[in-house]
Design a protein around this nucleic acid. Structure first.
Length: 305
DNA sequence: AACTGTGCCAACCGCGCACCT
DNA sequence: GAGGTGCGCGGTTGGCACAGT
């Protein structure tokens, strides 16, 4: 017995098997073979499935192709505003648990959400020169992007559903979608104006489990329509409103949904900031919408306060 | 027209967990 | 309990498309 020889033959056999395995982009025939096989026999045992279906692919590869591409319920196309908001929200809650996040976005795959996060969100963290996991970035997300997204969802629904539908109804329509996905009672209310002199608040609230939680929309008087760029969805906020004295504000309880936390600003400070913003806008080109990507120097944002 | 940079996304890789023997 | 196998997840890469120079 030539052990060395046997080993050599085994290696050779293994090499042949590795060589026979296909890698890279899937061909149409392979897709059909996989779909046909699964439609007849169902999923499961991916390695044996790959062999049985006559595919020269690993089980892993077949599984990935099916789950991320061929599955009939896979949704393709742009991530909607509601989905963006949900992704930001769920990521703030769970971190990089992509598959868990994907479970709450019907038809979206973990891969797609992960790609979205990496290409869009992390890009802005980079522009802000801060770490995507930093407190600074998370707060920017929570108090800037998410309110902005909520506002844009409202604006979009007000124009696309039916002009006759009140804003309130339209907003509830969208958040109901989110409610359905998250599966917990959320309630979004319109800006409430309390006509009381010094303690007036303009508050824009999204209520989840807590009855008093709310957050402001920085857009109440700076509404600006974005381009269709998916990136600009996150880049159009003009100023950052840090949490002002609000007993309901909960600083970072990781177990809570982020936008249950609230932010109420008094009109006086709000208008002051608006005036400052207008002055800046006149003097600085970087403040203009077409240069939205340049907004993401957080020090500049802070300097507006 | 050619080249370069950037964004995006499909696919791969490595690790860890669960289950089975 | 130990080892083997399959699967799922998160991170990373490769390549295509497009825009800008």
């Amino acid at each position: 017995m030539n052990v060395k020889g046997e080993k050599g033959e085994e290696d050779q056999e293994e090499m042949v098997m590795i060589e026979e395995l296909r890698r890279g982009p899937w061909k149409v025939e392979e897709d059909f073979a996989l779909m046909n096989y699964i439609s007849l026999h169902g999923e499961g045992r991916w390695n044996s499935l790959a062999c049985s279906a006559g595919l020269k692919r690993t089980g892993k590869s077949c599984r990935l192709r099916w789950l991320n591409y061929l599955r009939p319920d896979v949704r393709r196309g742009n991530i909607t505003l509601e989905e963006q908001l949900l992704i930001l929200e769920l990521h703030s809650r769970w971190g990089n648990r992509w598959s868990k996040i994907a479970q709450h976005l019907p038809g979206r795959t973990d891969n797609e959400i992960k790609n979205y996060w990496r290409t869009r969100v992390q890009k802005h963290a980079k522009q802000l020169k801060c770490d995507v996991n930093s407190k600074q970035f998370k707060e920017t997300m929570r108090y800037l992007w998410m309110p902005r997204l909520a506002e844009r969802i409202q604006a979009a629904s007000a124009t696309t559903i039916s002009p006759e539908i009140s804003e309130s109804t339209a907003l509830n329509y969208n958040t109901n979608n989110i409610n359905n996905i998250i599966g917990s009672p959320h309630q979004v209310t319109m800006p409430q104006e309390h006509a009381q002199a010094s303690s007036d608040t303009i508050c824009y609230s999204v209520q989840l489990d807590k009855p008093n939680s709310s957050f402001t929309s920085d857009s109440l008087n700076t509404t600006k329509t974005s381009s269709n760029s998916p990136i600009s969805d996150l880049t159009e906020c003009c100023y950052y409103h840090p949490p002002v004295t609000n007993p309901n504000y909960d600083h970072g309880n990781g177990s809570e949904l982020g936008f249950t936390e609230c932010l109420i600003i008094s009109p006086s400070s709000y208008y002051d900031q608006d005036l400052a913003f207008q002055a800046m806008e006149q003097n600085n080109q970087w403040m203009r919408g077409d240069l939205a990507d340049n907004l993401w120097n957080v020090e500049d944002i802070w300097s507006l306060q």
